[in-house]
């Protein structure tokens, strides 16, 4: 598997305080990788070390390709217009003004508006367009949808997906669990400067050892039974509901019982731990 970003034993100190304690991870070419974590976990510091705007104290960072960066807090001169800003960065990168990028990000709609008058969404789109000026292989996005309304968020997600389809590698930091679940191939969870988890969202939620709930609606009422793999069931809005920590066995047991009773299954729902709950659990672990 081709690797786009390799981070090995990254240590960063601010004065006497160590904020990154030797984290290591790699991002594969063409994947979207998210860094998650509470405020102060070290997400932005990690990204800034990778971007090269902050020097790390120990460890190595290898980038296999050109990078484009959209910062979490970025700004431009208040009275520069969107098009002037785009042109300025294009010229310094010796890149032509890509009309396609300007159209895709809707920048032509506000090209003559001054930066201070742009909405948060327009600013984000402009900064993302600027990040793509040098046709980067790797795109680093720090909280790309923070402060955006739903429409802006959906629009930006669409653009990020297009970038992935174009073969770009994307490393992003986010607080938005829905964003991470829908966009990202893999996630890394930072906790107090350490990497507490790395894998897919499904692996993360699947590794949850807590309780899941099974909701079953049947044609005939479900009798009260003692179940081996789950709690005794109770009725919740027409659904027979059980709680279990052994989801596969409990499901099998319930379905077998249904068949034995010749009862028809009308609906079944499983409520498992969400990414958000899993994150909270990881944050609590070890505290």
């Amino acid at each position: 598997m081709d690797i786009a970003i390799e981070v090995n034993n990254l240590v960063k100190n601010y004065g006497n305080v160590t904020v990154l304690h030797g984290i290591s991870f790699s991002v594969r070419k063409g994947e979207i990788f998210a860094l998650l974590g509470a405020n102060g976990a070290g997400k932005t510091t990690t990204l800034e070390c990778i971007e090269g705007i902050r020097r790390h104290n120990e460890g190595t960072i290898a980038l296999h390709g050109k990078i484009g960066v959209q910062l979490q807090s970025s700004s431009l001169m208040e009275n520069i217009t969107a098009l002037e800003a785009y042109r300025l960065f294009s010229k310094w990168n010796r890149a032509p003004v890509h009309k396609g990028i300007l159209e895709n990000f809707g920048i032509l709609e506000f090209k003559n508006k001054q930066y201070r008058t742009l909405s948060t969404g327009q600013k984000r789109r402009l900064h993302l367009a600027i990040a793509l000026i040098n046709n980067p292989d790797i795109i680093i996005l720090d909280e790309p949808t923070a402060g955006l309304d739903v429409e802006g968020r959906v629009s930006l997600h669409r653009e990020i997906r297009k970038l992935k389809e174009a073969g770009k590698t994307i490393l992003l930091a986010s607080h938005d669990m829905a964003e991470v679940e829908t966009l990202c191939d893999r996630i890394g969870i930072l906790k107090e400067g350490n990497l507490a988890f790395i894998g897919t969202a499904n692996e993360l939620t699947g590794s949850y050892l807590g309780e899941s709930k099974i909701y079953i609606r049947t044609r005939n009422p479900f009798p009260e039974l003692k179940l081996r793999y789950s709690s005794p069931g109770n009725l919740e809005k027409d659904y027979f509901t059980v709680t279990t920590t052994e989801i596969s066995d409990a499901l099998l047991e319930l379905l077998t019982l249904l068949k034995e009773m010749d009862n028809d299954l009308l609906d079944i729902k499983i409520e498992r731990s969400t990414l958000e709950e899993r994150l909270i659990e990881i944050a609590k672990e070890g505290n």
Binding site: E51, G52, I53, V69, L71, S73, S74, S75, L76, M77, E78, L88, F89, W92, N93, H127, I130, A131, I133, N134
Partner: peptide, 24 residues
């Protein structure tokens, strides 16, 4: 005035990551 805006805020970061030398 423009220098305070540029070097005390986030604009310098945008310059750094955007390939514009800091002395510019």
């Amino acid at each position: 005035i423009p220098l305070v805006e540029l070097y005390s805020g986030d604009i310098k970061k945008a310059y750094k990551v955007g390939g514009i030398p800091i002395w510019v």
